[in-house]
Amino acid sequence: MGDQDLPGVLVSGFEGPSGICKDHVGELQKYFNLITVQDLLENKTQVGPKIQAVYIWNRKPAIDQELLQSLPALKIVANAGAGLDHLDLKLIASFGVKVANTPQAVSSPTADMGMALLLAAARRVVEGHQLATSPDTKNFSTNWLGQEVTGSTLGIIGMGSIGYKVAQRARAFEMNILYHNRKRRKSEEEEAVGATYCERLDDLLQRSDFVMLAMSLTPQTQRLIGRRELRLMKPTAILVNIGRGLLVDQDALVEALQTGVIGAAALDVSYPEPLPRDHPLLKLKNVTLTPHIGSATHQARWQMMENLIGSILASLNGLPIPNEVLLK
């Protein structure tokens, strides 16, 4: 624990893959007394009442009823990132606690990652690297081919801030852009990126050369892409997922990739994460996998931290909370 005169903020810890970013600790300690989960577990009676905010980094610490009951002074749960599927928002609200996240900080780097995966899968970059560096390679075949990106059709499922930034980038590649969203965008927003709305998801799947998932995980979107949806896609189509692994029926995806129902997949997310080391997705040449790094840039992570500080301070001072998450 740090300066006892500063507001207490619960963090997962300072070490390991779930710990907060070491580069951020000094900045956070200017404003808060950082209290780890271990500190709390060792002395709930004394430490619990000091905690006014929970700082969630890499989905940790987990928020459950027992934790909420042990923090009588808690005012806000500040979550790094845009996704909220790991939080029970109704439970948190029932304790009179606010929630904030950092959607603006993650939208541009995640859109960049979506395009990187699309390009890598289309041009078989990972396979090409392996071929170029293999000690067994004697020559390069002129008939080793990928898919053209320029002029192709991209279907974006989920046209929020990330999906829209993907569309902006795709337009520079002269792609034809389709999108499916819970709510249609304004006509001027569509025109700005040359996007066409598909009210029916099936239409988008049938027409797209690339399908990109850029939506939140909810009970309604879980396994949105299953065996039926994959069979609607072109046999040359490439599925890109920068949302959450559970948006896709993973068993159906493996089958589709193994049998040529679709051409390839590029995934920044899976379930679980990481996949078991014997998972079939790890053995397929037509799969590009990255370790959930959509927002993993120095700049984005620093902005996320700054946004969380701002939201916590606003909450503690009774001011409007930037990026407050409201129950729908």
Rank of each mutant, 00 (worst) to 15 (best):
D3W: 13
E15K: 11
G16E: 07
S18M: 15
G19L: 03
D23P: 11
H24A: 06
V25H: 09
T36R: 12
V37T: 12
L41A: 14
T45C: 14
T45R: 14
V47C: 07
G48H: 03
P49K: 05
D64H: 06
Q65V: 14
L67C: 03
L68G: 04
A73Q: 11
A80D: 08
L91G: 08
I92C: 02
I92Q: 00
K98P: 03
V106R: 03
V106G: 03
S108I: 14
D112W: 08
L118W: 08
L118Y: 07
A120H: 05
P135E: 05
T137L: 10
T137C: 08
N139L: 14
Q147S: 12
V149E: 01
G151L: 11
G151Q: 10
S152F: 07
I157H: 04
I157Y: 05
I162G: 05
G163S: 11
K165I: 04
V166S: 06
F173D: 04
I177S: 00
L178N: 00
L178P: 00
H180P: 05
K183E: 11
K186A: 15
E191P: 09
A192C: 10
G194D: 02
A195P: 01
C198V: 00
D202G: 08
D202N: 09
D202M: 07
Q206D: 11
Q222H: 13
R227L: 13
E229Q: 02
L230S: 01
L230Y: 04
T259M: 06
D268G: 00
S270F: 04
P274A: 07
R277T: 15
G294R: 01
Q299C: 09
W302S: 14
M305F: 12
N307R: 13
L313C: 07
A314S: 06
L316S: 00
G318D: 12
I321H: 04
P322Q: 02
V325I: 09
